[in-house]
Amino acid sequence: MSEKEHKVSRRQFLTYTLTGVGGFMAAGMLMPMARFALDPALEAGAESDFVRVASLDELTEEPQRFDFVVEQEDGWYSSEVTRVAWIYLANNEVVALSPVCTHLGCTVNWEGSESYPENFFCPCHGGRFERDGTNIQGTPPTRPLDVYEVQVEGDDVYLGGTVQR
């Protein structure tokens, strides 16, 4: 009865099954490839973890150095890394600057040279930055210091990843 209504020839049946199975196998191969290609792009946008670094009443208008520890994952190897931030208050907003010189990656210090007060100073090649992290023309760095993402909850200051400006 029903055999008469849907007539599927042997040839058609084989075509359908082979296309189905073939498609399934192709998808099985392509999916991981696409994932590998896209994964780094997805990861970069992923939200980084915030770490408590300081309490609000420790902060002043003067940039102060705070060290904190973050868990860093390199593939399947995770390790603890110490990071540094220069944190200060500007109009009651918390600003946290990365100490990594945008020239070649040395560590800068607030008023690190007596000749240049009110500047971040890089000991390697004399790079200088304003209080807000802007690079000073005529010194090697070509862009401002990176800033940390900041979250303030109650009295606690949390820092996340760094953002390029």
Binding site: C106, T107, P123
Partner: peptide, 8 residues
């Protein structure tokens, strides 16, 4: 090395 990465 961490402190003076760019010169050392």
């Amino acid at each position: 090395e961490k402190q003076f990465k760019g010169r050392v």
